[in-house]
Nucleic acid binder design. Sequence first.
DNA 1: GGGGGGCGTCAAGACTCCGTTAGGACTGGC
DNA 2: GCCAGTCCTAACGGAGTCTTGACGCCCCCC
Lengths: 226, 226
Amino acid sequence: MTRVLVVDDEPQIVRALVINLKARKYEVDAAHDGASALELAAARHPDVVLLDLGLPDLDGVEVIRGLRGWTRVPIIVLSARHSSDEKVEALDAGADDYVTKPFGMDELLARMRAAIRRAEPVAGEDESTVVTEGFTVDLAAKKVNRDGTDIRLTPTEWHLLEVLVRNAGRLVSQTQLLQEVWGPAYRTETNYLRVYLAQLRRKLEADPSHPRHFITEPGMGYRFEP
Amino acid sequence: MTRVLVVDDEPQIVRALVINLKARKYEVDAAHDGASALELAAARHPDVVLLDLGLPDLDGVEVIRGLRGWTRVPIIVLSARHSSDEKVEALDAGADDYVTKPFGMDELLARMRAAIRRAEPVAGEDESTVVTEGFTVDLAAKKVNRDGTDIRLTPTEWHLLEVLVRNAGRLVSQTQLLQEVWGPAYRTETNYLRVYLAQLRRKLEADPSHPRHFITEPGMGYRFEP
DNA sequence: GGGGGGCGTCAAGACTCCGTTAGGACTGGC
DNA sequence: GCCAGTCCTAACGGAGTCTTGACGCCCCCC
């Protein structure tokens, strides 16, 4: 669950925020001065901090610096002051966003979501490796690994492999392969395919003469089977 | 240098932004509709996007989605609309910040700095040093150590090493290397790569003629293996 | 059972690409 | 204005890659 640290010295505001956040399934901690804010942040490791600038003990900017000394947790400043200088100072001290009171709760929540999303590690899209029983193809790193050792492929071999792997399981026609790898002028040079498919099989198949992953569909094309 | 993409259909606003940003040593590209914004973003890889929501062709939110399909570049929305719904929609679509016109230039710049800082890779303690058997690269301190002594690298050598090390294990194409180190106009000068790779190997490899860490993939590019 | 098209295999020449070297141009510091 | 360091550029030999043609096999169709 996402954890939020609310820092404000006005009890009403804290209460309003806490109620709203808990209703949306956030886990909420609250501090009403700078010192306890820093303590709570260290103890609870929140995913986002909502920070009022007007605290009784520390200047809000000091709190930001204190946090930035050891964490990159998103900090959203809440402040009644509209002055441009204050905003610049807080942002340059390390704040991520600056919202002036009074603010709409919807907007604040959207800004929180944006800040949290941004802080997430790049999770997705890294699924660029294809694994078979015999070998592993890493499309991003342009690497092929077999039995723990990297296999060297020539540019043409790699290009051909890439087209086949990106269409894993599907039949790719000879015309399409030739066009993608050698260009539109070579759409009839089926010779090339035979030569390079053989080389790929020799480098990657356990038994090159009985391929299991690079299947020939006579008269039609080739298919890569993971 | 930090690159900014400004997207707005009102020429005055674009002009004002461009002047202000260039005065502060940002590199600026400008687009006046959504389609060219997406194109420019793909071509130039900006470090931050300033996006007006009211574009002639696409809805601003569509532009955000288009960008978020392939990049996490910070997007700061500039809009004349104060409605909370609009803000929520833009932020949830993937925007990082939402500034309502008219805005103070100081504040916008501070929000830009915050967005850019946040997007920076975790430079500190995390994994800013890469260690191999022969040498150690400290990306944060810009230092290379070998057998206890620091190795001096020229700016170009360092830049090249940095790109390779940041993509450790992955293959980096010659085009990408040339573009990152020398700029888009030099994408075909593979000469440079050969010369500077040789210098890097001479300074860092135990046996420069049989490199173990700076691997050549003929016809494709180079790869740094830790 | 014979013929033919499609496929796998092999080898050799042409070609591209890479490592290396060296010299001249350029820049910044003294 | 000189000097050291750095960058750009061109050229060459060698290694690896691509292209190309030829040959034999298998399977399908006649």
